[in-house]
Write a protein that binds this DNA or RNA. Sequence first.
DNA 1: CATGTTTCCTGACAGC
DNA 2: TGCTGTCAGGAAACAT
Length: 304
Amino acid sequence: MPELPEVETIANGVDARVRGRSIVSVWLGSKPEPFRSTPAELVKALTGSKIEHVRRVGKHIVVDLTRDSAATRRRSTAAAGKSKPWRGQWLVHLGMTGRLLVCQPDEPVPKHTHAILQLDDAREVRFVDPRRFGRLSVLDLSAEAAPKTGKREKGTGSTDKGFVGPGQEPLDIPVDAFRALFRGRRTPIKSALLNQKLLHGVGNIYADESLFHAGIRPLRQAGRLKAEELAVLRSAIQSVLREAITLGGSSVSDYVDASGEKGFFQLEHKVYLRTGEPCLVCGTPIRRILVAGRGTHFCPHCQH
DNA sequence: CATGTTTCCTGACAGC
DNA sequence: TGCTGTCAGGAAACAT
């Protein structure tokens, strides 16, 4: 399942392949689940737009778009010659099984393809998602300034600067801010790590792996961890995520990057999906419990 | 507000 | 072989 390292790998791969290209046409499938914006809004924002940049924010892929206002919009009544380009963003969340692929047009279109963007060099960006937990949406950043109150960002973290995600970036957060996230929380630290409104980007695999590296049990109350333990946990999260990015992510399930390549971090997993197998540090069998409805793996000897 | 529980989906896999 | 039942899990909706 795509978490921060997988999304980063995919976003970088797509960026390298399509940056600077324009979207000629858009096809959307008939299943409604993947569309967080309406199909009309998606088509309107994407068609004719230029892809300026593809990057990761939390677990989202953010595609920055521009379009010359003069070219496609009705002639602006005000300032005739010098209209600013329209700006928008395409947000892609891959959910559990989503893929964002850059393909040649003659490659067969797999089942569960929900969106195809045709580029000006004839290649296609395809969104494929069998389980349909993924989500596509668009933001109109040019319109953002005018509507004052009313539609706030409602936790999705969109501002006039565009999408900033629901929480803090695990790789950037200072240690004091990291500690503050968990202050007073009674929920298990594993649950808190999965809460995207606190840190965004960490999912089930990297929560378990980080807690193992930090030597902290997943059921410890988040607000009762010592300052030193939280500092260690933050470092563990960052080193695990960076290592995973370096290796191209974890290919469990059917994850592949933008060109269909698998990652290799799954070979480095110390606890995830190793239930009953010996801990690689002490040999104690890895235990599996359920926390926040998620399979949770830990070493009862190494983690306290 | 904080926290826990249910729901959405399909593919994979166990068991018969 | 092929059917049925179970399960996984991100995030939002819903319940407490």
